[in-house]
Nucleic acid binder design. Structure first.
Length: 209
DNA sequence: CTTTGGATCGTCT
DNA sequence: GACGATCCAAAGG
């Protein structure tokens, strides 16, 4: 038995973890660790997107150059550029040819705080370093250069680890943020009470516990 | 505290 | 030519 805060063994999530629907994978990504460039963050907020089933998904209208990674094999990172200045990162789910993904919306800083603060100059509170999908990419140093990276194979530049911290039994949930269509679907989940979550209070949110 | 508007450009129509 | 799976500063209560 290890006391709270003591470091535990980290294991990379297997390919089969991602080879399922995004609605199943998303809440189970909560409390997993994202690692890149010597920086580590704990995933505390996610959203599911479902290709052809989902009018809010980038993949809804079929494959393009931009969304190609979403249609690829599971366990890869889909990074897109938006609003002329921001990157956002997703984990690809389901077998090749089926485009489902989980958007990473917020991380809790774990390791590499100095690098994160440097990448997010002007931000004074550490809870605001990664409290949004574009903020976390900036803090972690993730750009379009990381699009398509395999999260599973040894030697990957980006990886997702399980360090033994369980996902919430009953995560908080709400509709997805910043979309025009299907905003009523409760496909956003977060760790209840975590101070790094982007928008804890939204209409129709379920608190979790 | 909440609301509003500007930034800025790749992508698809 | 229009529009983002956003962020931030400034203005308003």
């Amino acid at each position: 038995m290890s006391a709270p805060g003591v470091s535990r063994r980290r294991r990379v999530l297997a390919r089969r973890f991602y080879d399922r629907g995004a609605l199943e994978v998303a809440p189970q990504l909560l409390n997993k660790l994202l690692v890149h460039g010597g920086r580590v963050g704990r995933i505390v907020e996610v959203e599911a997107y479902r290709g052809s089933e989902d009018p809010a998904s980038h993949a809804y209208r079929g494959p393009t150059a931009r969304n190609a990674t979403m249609f690829g094999p599971p366990g890869h990172l889909y990074v897109y550029f938006t609003y002329g200045m921001h990157f956002c990162a997703n984990v690809v789910c389901m077998p090749e040819g089926i485009a489902e993904a989980v958007l990473l919306r917020a991380l809790a800083p774990v390791t590499g705080l100095e690098a994160m603060r440097a990448a997010r100059s002007g931000i004074d509170k550490d809870t605001e370093l990664m409290s949004g999908p574009a903020k976390l990419c900036q803090a972690m140093g993730i750009t379009r250069a990381e699009d398509g990276v395999d999260l599973v194979t040894a030697g990957s530049t980006v990886a997702v680890f399980d360090d033994g911290v369980a996902s919430p039994t009953l995560p908080a949930s709400s509709g997805r943020i910043g979309i025009r269509h299907a905003s009523d679907l409760p496909w956003r989940w977060w760790v209840p009470g975590d101070p790094n979550v982007s928008r804890p209070r939204v209409p129709g949110a379920r608190p979790g516990r």
